[in-house]
Design a protein around this nucleic acid. Structure first.
Lengths: 104, 104
DNA sequence: TATTTATTTCAAGAGGTATTGAAATATGGA
DNA sequence: TCCATATTTCAATACCTCTTGAAATAAATA
């Protein structure tokens, strides 16, 4: 992970529709949701939803699996965690004394 | 915090220069860094650095304080934490049984 | 007060991202 | 095979963001 890559990943999160998708999938957990259900939940057209799902999928935030006619999406928590850890890397010069400044 | 606001905040993080700034300030911790030192660290011109510092300041990710001729910037960990918590809100339907799926 | 240092502001141009609706693709069932 | 359902792809348009360099502002010192 470098700064430009991480910036692209944050870019994938910098859209209201895409955050609605992520948050819906965070709540859904391992069950996931179909593209159609996601479109209904975020109140967006199929093509618009698909556009945003692709952006999130390309960034690695969501996983996709076909179940019959539907595509089921799930959030990938590891990707979110990796990005947060990148941001906090080397926090406060690595000093354990100052470590509390990094907690949230 | 709503989806559009959070999207703007992620937008403020969706740039390589701005991530370099944040990460430098995360490392610097409570000491902070001057705008000039930041410009040197991220290898960007003063005007470009100032543009990105403004974006981060407006988003609330960094705090600013004048010390003599210099402006000293510090990261605001609370803002980062608030954004991460927004993303993970209601994780896995709030089920404590499934809570492990949300950890990273 | 005049000068130097530190930083921000501004305008113009280039490049990137979102929305729409129609058409294409993929799958399952009659 | 034919049809219906589920989802993606595409092209056009509109909008937003970044970079650059020059000029403006702010504060400290001689």
């Amino acid at each position: 992970m470098d700064d430009e890559k991480a910036a692209d990943l944050f870019g994938a999160l910098s859209n209201g529709d895409r955050l609605k998708v992520i948050r819906a999938l965070v709540e859904a957990g391992p069950d996931g949701m179909s593209a159609g259900d996601i479109a209904g939940k975020i109140k967006a057209s199929p093509s618009r939803t698909s556009f945003h799902l692709s952006a999130l999928f390309d960034a690695g935030f969501i996983l996709r699996e076909r179940r019959s006619r539907s595509l089921i999406y799930q959030v990938d928590f590891k990707r979110i965690g990796g990005l947060v850890n990148f941001l906090m890397e080397g926090c406060c010069k690595g000093s354990s004394e100052l470590r509390s400044c990094c907690s949230f």
